[in-house]
Measured scan of single mutants.
Amino acid sequence: KKKYVIKVYFEDTGKEVEIEAESKEEALEAAKRLAEELGLKIKKVEIYP
């Protein structure tokens, strides 16, 4: 089964997080949740198959 690796870059902090997920949708949801939890804004998202 294919996994996606999503790199999320946050504004202000210069922080980046990698998330593995089964689908792009799932990964983007996780990225949004994470940003909310951390109180950060997402600057850029890169998706690698």
Rank of each mutant, 00 (worst) to 15 (best):
K1I: 14
K1E: 11
K1W: 01
K1C: 10
K1P: 12
K1Y: 02
K1G: 14
K2S: 14
K2R: 07
K2G: 13
K3A: 14
K3I: 08
K3R: 06
K3H: 15
Y4K: 03
Y4V: 15
V5Y: 09
V5T: 12
V5L: 05
V5P: 01
V5I: 07
I6E: 00
I6G: 05
I6S: 02
K7P: 00
K7C: 04
K7W: 05
K7G: 02
V8S: 00
V8Q: 00
V8I: 13
V8F: 14
V8H: 00
Y9K: 04
Y9L: 11
Y9T: 09
Y9Q: 06
F10P: 00
F10M: 02
F10D: 01
F10S: 01
F10Q: 00
F10G: 01
F10R: 00
E11Q: 15
E11P: 02
E11M: 05
E11Y: 07
D12N: 10
D12I: 15
D12E: 08
T13M: 09
T13E: 14
T13R: 12
G14D: 10
G14Y: 14
G14I: 15
G14S: 15
G14P: 07
G14M: 09
K15H: 15
K15W: 08
K15E: 10
E16M: 08
E16T: 12
E16F: 15
E16V: 05
E16H: 10
E16K: 06
V17A: 05
V17R: 08
V17T: 07
V17W: 12
V17Y: 07
E18N: 04
E18L: 13
I19M: 14
I19F: 09
I19G: 01
E20R: 08
E20I: 12
E20V: 11
E20C: 06
A21H: 12
A21F: 08
A21P: 00
A21V: 14
A21I: 14
A21Y: 06
E22Q: 04
E22A: 09
E22M: 03
E22P: 11
S23R: 03
S23N: 13
S23T: 11
S23C: 03
K24Y: 13
K24A: 14
K24Q: 13
E25W: 04
E25Y: 05
E25L: 06
E25P: 05
E25S: 03
E25A: 14
E25H: 12
E25Q: 05
E26T: 07
E26P: 01
E26A: 15
E26K: 05
E26M: 07
A27Y: 02
A27V: 15
A27G: 15
A27L: 10
A27S: 04
A27W: 02
L28N: 08
L28T: 06
L28F: 07
L28D: 07
E29A: 15
E29Q: 04
E29D: 13
E29M: 09
E29C: 05
A30V: 09
A30Q: 14
A30N: 12
A30M: 08
A31L: 05
A31M: 10
A31N: 00
A31D: 00
K32N: 15
K32D: 08
K32I: 11
K32R: 06
R33W: 06
R33Q: 07
L34Q: 03
L34S: 03
L34G: 01
L34T: 08
L34D: 01
L34A: 04
L34R: 06
A35F: 06
A35G: 09
A35P: 01
E36M: 11
E36A: 13
E36P: 01
E36K: 09
E37V: 04
E37F: 03
E37Y: 06
E37Q: 10
E37T: 05
E37K: 11
L38C: 04
L38D: 01
L38N: 08
L38H: 08
L38T: 05
L38F: 07
L38V: 11
L38G: 04
L38P: 01
G39K: 08
G39Q: 10
G39H: 08
G39E: 11
G39D: 07
G39A: 12
G39Y: 02
L40R: 14
L40S: 08
L40F: 06
L40V: 11
L40D: 08
K41C: 10
K41F: 03
I42M: 03
I42N: 00
I42F: 02
K43F: 05
K43T: 13
K43M: 13
K43A: 15
K43I: 14
K43Q: 12
K43P: 01
K43V: 06
K44S: 13
K44Q: 12
K44D: 05
K44E: 10
K44V: 09
K44G: 09
K44R: 04
V45R: 01
V45Y: 03
V45F: 07
V45A: 03
V45W: 04
E46M: 10
E46R: 04
E46G: 02
E46C: 03
E46Q: 10
E46V: 15
E46Y: 04
I47T: 04
I47R: 02
I47D: 04
I47Q: 10
Y48G: 14
Y48F: 15
Y48V: 12
Y48P: 06
Y48N: 14
P49V: 05
P49A: 02
P49M: 08
P49R: 02
P49K: 02
P49H: 15
P49I: 12
